[in-house]
């Protein structure tokens, strides 16, 4: 048909999902993190540490703290994802739509309250430990995921939803096959924000005995040991960069093709 010839269609670019900047970021960031870590590692192996420093910076201690930190972050994120996304979905359904400003306002309060205050408050109320820290962190990271889920679902073109309904898809099918896939990019950027918030604030967990790399910083400050303090800060920063990177990878690979 002549129509085919005459219609100017953009060239197909199926499968190509990432822009060049994204590729540079996704490949470059872990390389940079690895390089900085290598420098720190060499320093750590060769530095002339005093007794206190050596005890605080044993490989074993650092590994334990790192693992606690990652656990706090990931468990917190998992809980936030498992609660905030369903709640965001519920709050965009016709029946509950009216409640969404109320809930978002509440979540806003959770985020604007200082985390350290939140943690201490919870500790006083529920005691010290890992799960209390997770609870405090979740409250803090709940908002971005909830808000992005709501926004992500609201920004789906209503004519597409109507088209889907008009073709005979059930409301549930419209949600799972049209609304959620189209909202995924926005939701995932909320999840990444939550991850980054959590990895940063998990440093405070040490105040309520929940572990994490924050321990190095407090030790460094309490004992006036600069190498400990800097090691802690550096490792937290590197972990945060890496988590942010993982979030970006997740974002890139959950984004539906064609969007």
């Amino acid at each position: 048909m002549s129509t085919e010839v005459l219609d100017t269609a953009p060239a197909p670019e199926t499968g190509k999902r990432l822009s060049r900047e994204q590729v540079i970021l996704l490949v470059g960031l872990p390389l940079a993190v690895a390089a900085i870590f290598a420098v720190w590692f060499i320093w750590w192996r060769t530095a002339d540490l005093d007794d206190i420093e050596a005890r605080a910076l044993t490989g074993e201690a650092i590994r334990a703290m790192l693992w606690e930190h990652i656990k706090l972050t990931l468990v917190g994120t998992a809980i936030v994802v498992a609660t905030a996304i369903p709640m965001g979905i519920a709050l965009t359904r016709p029946g509950l739509r009216r409640l969404s400003p109320l809930v978002v306002g509440f979540a806003n309060m959770g985020q604007s309250a200082p985390v350290i205050g939140l943690l201490v408050l919870f500790a006083m109320w529920l005691g010290f430990g890992f799960w209390v820290a997770v609870l405090g962190l979740c409250l803090y990271a709940f908002l971005p995921v909830l808000r992005n889920t709501i926004v992500g679902l609201q920004q789906v073109d209503p004519t597409l939803i109507e088209a889907a309904r008009g073709m005979g898809m059930s409301p549930l099918a419209v949600l799972t096959k049209v609304e959620l896939p189209l909202a995924v990019p926005v939701i995932m950027s909320g999840v990444r924000t939550a991850l980054v918030l959590l990895v940063g604030t998990a440093s405070l967990a040490t105040f309520i005995n929940a572990g994490g790399l924050g321990g190095l910083i407090t030790t460094g400050i309490n004992l006036f040991r600069f190498p400990i303090l800097v090691s802690g800060a550096l490792l937290i920063a590197l972990l945060a960069l890496l988590i942010d990177w993982a979030g970006r990878v997740l974002e890139a690979f959950t984004r539906p093709k064609g969007v």
Partner: peptide, 17 residues
């Protein structure tokens, strides 16, 4: 009912994903 009625709207309204 809707599955037995074709529905075409402006611009095609194709699902982009």
């Amino acid at each position: 009912l809707r599955r037995s009625i074709g529905y075409v709207i402006q611009g095609g309204s194709l699902f982009p994903h």
